[in-house]
Design a protein around this nucleic acid. Structure first.
Lengths: 323, 323
DNA sequence: CCGACATATGCTCAATGTGAGTATAGCTAC
DNA sequence: GTAGCTATACTCACATTGAGCATATGTCGG
């Protein structure tokens, strides 16, 4: 048994070098993408008239990163935080807005919750920020009308090898020339638009006209963080039963489907959706039915919390239509 | 167009609160899980006689987190860093060893590379640290012999509701009672053993005897970071063509299979593996064949770099045998 | 030169999963 | 009652996947 295994060891080289650091100029910021789905729209909690995500500095007093995040979010939004998972840690020098030369590290988190009644201020549809991401009613016009031609122009400014690469990226991420739409590429799409100078954030300080793509901009790199959160959530609902964090205690299968569709930004085949949800035993009937205004009443279901323990981390497999 | 979209905005509430911070006591550490596969073993680059991962503090002078990481790794290991992706950011107060009360944030990265000739010092099989993770030749004895009974004891110390939960976690993560083995649960298994006090790291400062499970311990929370890297890589090879970052320029399909098996810690069905790799057009023949000592010569292949661009982020689908 | 042996490679088959469509049931509004 | 809507049950073709059999092409010991 080595000394390390008794917890006595002190590391050599790396620890020694650590003494020379100049860490006093590094700030650590915690940022939350807090998501809820209401009235068929995926919503994100914002501050400052929709320009910022809840965030605050990590402090020595915080027990953990998550604890610090919870403190800030509950303080700023007065909204409780349920399911939380870490997203990404950003620290690019040129992306954090006009903050001088101090370095800021943003540790971002995704939070899922049920929007409380009555509807509070900060909730906004995430498609306000990414209109090109909503394909529930087919491909949004902005892609063919504005995005595609501008990306072509942008690629055209380059010469052969680089141009081909730009064209390829545009085709794959925005489903041009018959490529299939991939809902999980939200971040890649935003980054492509950023590089192409088509979002307001990439024009900052350069005095250029803001984009006319229709998406709202945000403070600092918050829109990038939001894109990261959307991409992660879209990927995750396909193999982990996290959708239920966004649902009320009981719900109909159609409500569940609408929730998934809102998040994924695309329509799903109703019958297949039911088949999958039921045969995976993710839900159980409550016995009650809804009495909505119109149509045959639907059975009410609740999430079977048992599956989380049983299959641990198995797989949810939400079917997402491909055409 | 709002002021934010012209890049003029300064955030209200959160920015104001940020002034009260006490960030001077927070250190930011960059840590690398650098992986290579040689002689059929998945290896990780270590320092300090295998007790630490390459790491160093993030400094204001670094262009980005990745740039800082590359600097440290190349300085400490003299080994170039190829493919890199962020893993996770840790900051638990009680997991970073005996460093007083200064808070340390560890931002960890996964790096993939080809081990250089001649074999250098720091490379170690990651199964030295996690012997229970290698199921290529069936379930390792340590699970039935040592892990399972001790976890049962640990669960038995609790009363009804909590005991059931512990038992369930043990069964699912370690494939007891007929549950299938899930190779991606490396981190969950390590965390379970940590909680149960069965790894040396969780006995630190408590004077308890170190575990006899056979796994090497590491400095601070480096073994947890390594577990995170293994889990991520095992998940990723199944849907992204990252294995090729670990392969030489040309290779046979069996070599590729052995590499995947080393990483996943389980055997795969040979014919199905070939079928999948070939029909996905991940590789192309070089025209040459190997002339190994024994057996029919195998065709040599190279990775088709085109697929990365073509299918962007589509899916590799490496088949992993279930029984 | 032969046969044992080892790896490479081609092919089949059953079971399961998945996308898409048809058909029927049970409500409300008029 | 019927139009119109949603709920729910089945069907079907096709792709994917796990598993195994068969054959090809080398080396090696005699």
């Amino acid at each position: 048994m080595s000394s390390a295994e008794r917890g006595q060891i002190s590391r050599g080289e790396p620890a020694a070098k650590a003494e020379h650091r100049t860490e006093h100029a590094i700030k650590v910021e915690l940022t939350a993408v807090l998501v809820a789905v209401t009235q068929g729209e995926p919503r994100v909690m914002t501050l400052d008239a929709g320009h910022a995500l809840p965030s605050g500095p990590f402090e020595v007093a915080h027990r953990s990163l998550q604890a610090g995040l919870r403190d800030w979010v509950e303080q700023q939004t007065h909204h409780p935080l349920g399911y939380v998972e870490q997203l990404y840690t950003f620290a690019d020098k040129d992306r954090t807005g006009a903050e001088g030369d101090a370095r800021t590290i943003s540790i971002s988190y995704l939070g899922l919750t049920r929007e409380r009644e009555p509807a509070e201020g900060g909730w906004r549809s995430w498609y306000d920020y990414f209109p090109w991401e909503d394909h529930r009613a087919g491909e949004p016009e902005v892609i063919a009308q504005a995005i595609a031609p501008r990306l072509m122009d942008w690629a055209g400014k380059e010469t052969a090898p680089k141009r081909a690469e730009r064209l390829q990226r545009a085709r794959v991420t925005f489903a041009l020339d018959g490529h299939p739409w991939n809902d999980e590429l939200t971040l890649q799409r935003y980054e492509l638009l950023y590089e192409a100078g088509l979002v307001a954030e990439s024009c900052r300080g350069r005095g250029e006209a803001a984009s006319r793509l229709g998406g709202r901009a945000m403070f600092s790199d918050h829109r990038r963080i939001l894109a990261t959160g959307i991409a992660r959530l879209r990927a995750k609902i396909k193999y982990r039963p996290v959708v239920f964090e966004l649902m009320p205690p009981t719900f109909t299968l159609l409500q569940l489907q609408r929730c998934v569709e809102a998040l994924a930004g695309r329509a799903v085949h109703k019958q297949n959706f039911r088949r999958l949800v039921e045969q995976q035993e993710l839900v159980e009937e409550t016995g009650a039915t809804t009495s909505e205004a119109v149509g045959r009443p639907a059975k009410l279901f609740r999430f079977r919390h048992g599956v989380v323990a049983e299959r641990a981390v198995a797989g949810t497999k939400i079917p997402i239509a491909r055409t």
